[in-house]
Design a binder for these strands. Structure first.
Lengths: 215, 215, 215, 215
DNA sequence: TCGTAAGCGAGACGGTACGTCGAGTCTTGCT
DNA sequence: AGCAAGACTCGACGTACCGTCTCGCTTACGA
């Protein structure tokens, strides 16, 4: 029942914060940064991301919605990208499931997964960010830990399954995770479709048993 | 050995052109729109998309590169989105493969697939567009036929395999296609990874045989 | 009771028409220019000048109002300036008055003058054109005969007055005309005021008798 | 030897500035508007007005010449009209002259007047603005005080002359001013002519003594 | 306790791109 | 060859944000 992987990812993303290091090095007098403003900015960012999407998101809009000056944002994040990444990374992660069998673990985890996409900004924010990766290596590096954190629970499920002997030794666990997540990804990106929990069982069944006719 | 599905998709996308309908309704004559300019705009769009990506693409830049006035662009496309969709849809499709067996069909098609993503703007443009779908229903409708056209060859491969008896009758062919395409999609979107042809064989093998240990 | 001075001025202005000369020189086959269109363009120009003024006048608007293609306008006038000048010159002139005395001639003519300014586009178009003269020598040359035609009736009045012995021999008749027209011009340009016929009598009286106290 | 009337006129024209009122109402602080930029804009405006005239003046050109963003201009003036009016109003006024006699006062003042028209942008800017008055009530209201300020020195000259008994009691001083300024106005607007100082003496002589033959 | 250094909201700054409009030219098919 | 229609390139319009920069204020620490 692990949790909190998200926190690590967030911490990694936060390392892009403007210059906390140099700041500490010089001196530490002066008014401390307002934690209130910080949170208000992240909240406003998530709200606007969900409403208008990544490319229509403006720092000006975030500042206004958060009741904050633009400089207060730029003091913490160098541009809208790391801001969005941090806001995105702060979305709640989800706990591991251990129902005893590979099939049940996958199905339950996947259902929680879809629910998170449907009920939080994940479903709209993640595609927005993912779409920018190809043209923005910086962004790509930043969301990498966040994205990985969303895939790893599945790798752990397969690790446990291997220990139980449910799968062959030569199966690439990462590839297995991708196979199960794949139809979700295809639906989300290629088909622009709605992610229904009803998709889960057929996906898991087919991924586990394979497409070929069993002899 | 079918081909030309792309052309249909493009035609559908083109239906968003600014006002061909109203134009016909007024039954006006006037100077016809320049096919030369049209093509120059699409070419410039693809070139710039590949260079700077979707979000850094400016209509102003396209106009300049194409040697065309901005109005000439806006006369045809209401914004940069449908423009990019049409340019994107005009990318070459790929012909169906029939190598005789499900496994070979999938592997060969998938390799051609990856090659197209790696050598054309597809690999960068498609994620960009896909990421905007959630916030832009209009766009979503426009790229739908284009995206579907890129998935259908796989459905047809499975149809032939079913006729040959290689797969069970109750397998959902669409889901099977998603299973095979899935790891590509995950790599592209979740992991920002490079699409290497070396991925293909393991993916197909695992998708066909399934993750569970065969007894 | 002379009249028709305006016609001369118009003819002079028309000499700027795009290229009637070359046209005659080359050949005279083909469809002749539509006199109907010509008049429709001038009418539309005057109407729009009165409505929106010179600087807000667009050739596009004239073409639309006249039900004419833009090319038909540019075929006749090289730009909106000579077009406006010609339309302006075509406004009706006014006949000379000969009431027998300098004072009566001036007062009656001036009243007709003001009436023309108040009831036609003259009152708004003329200042617009005059204001552009300093920056547009071409325009300046074009409206020169038109403007002169509006001042000459006064010179003729003073010529008759001199013959009658009503004024001294050394009075510059042009300057005398300017002195009488002056307050009108000042009102129109410096004060943006309304031109009321009630202004006329005091103006003429003062101009004739002079400002200094008569001993 | 009064002076500074111009300053009042300018202040009145400035009252059209985009939003000083609303700004005060929100009692906001923020970075104050740059007086440097303000002056650079006015300077650039005057320079360009003199070079290309009013109708060829573009806000874009002013911004470029002044080294300023377009928004900085639009923040202060709602369009090029009030901008030009303010720049125009900022042109130097001229001091009253008191040479002891009506004739000398008029001649000296008028000469200074013509000199100002010939050596500053006044000679080209003022006609441009005046020509727009008829179609732009807003502009008309704005340049009204500026134009009046340029006429009032003459009214004051006549006031002093009346006190000295040089003119009759029933002479309308405003009309007298218009009579003296009139030929200048006619030359400027009706004739597009050059304003030469040689015009002054005959004008004043004729206006004072009147056109009619003295008995 | 008080100065000082940094953070704060506000908003102006020089820019760049937006999407629109009009200028003056060119290209259809028709008259 | 003229006509109405309307597309063409070009350039300015006035707006919106970008990321930076003052302003006049807090606010907390350390001398």
């Amino acid at each position: 029942m692990r949790a909190g992987k998200e926190a690590e990812a967030v911490a990694a993303a936060e390392s892009d914060r403007a210059k906390p290091t140099r700041r500490r090095m010089t001196s530490s007098t002066g008014r401390p940064r307002s934690e209130e403003a910080h949170q208000a900015i992240l909240d406003a960012t998530l709200a606007l991301l969900a409403e208008v999407g990544f490319s229509a998101l403006t720092v000006e809009g975030v500042a206004q919605r958060a009741g904050v000056g633009k400089a207060t944002i730029y003091r913490r994040w160098s541009s809208k990208l790391p801001l969005v990444v941090e806001a995105f990374g702060a979305l709640p992660g989800f706990e591991d499931v251990d129902a005893g069998s590979l099939e049940q673990d996958l199905k339950e985890t996947l259902k929680k997964y879809l629910e998170a996409f449907n009920t939080t900004a994940l479903g709209t924010v993640f595609p927005s960010l993912a779409g920018e990766r190809a043209h923005n290596p910086e962004l790509s590096k930043m969301i990498e830990p966040v994205a990985r954190a969303r895939r790893e629970p599945f790798v752990r499920i397969f690790e446990r399954a291997r220990q139980r002997g449910e799968i062959a030794d030569d199966v690439d666990l990462g590839l297995a995770a991708d196979l199960v997540l794949g139809p979700i990804s295809v639906t989300l990106f290629f088909r622009g479709g709605v992610l229904s929990p009803r998709m889960v069982d057929p996906i898991v069944d087919l991924a586990l048993s394979g497409i070929s006719k069993r002899n």
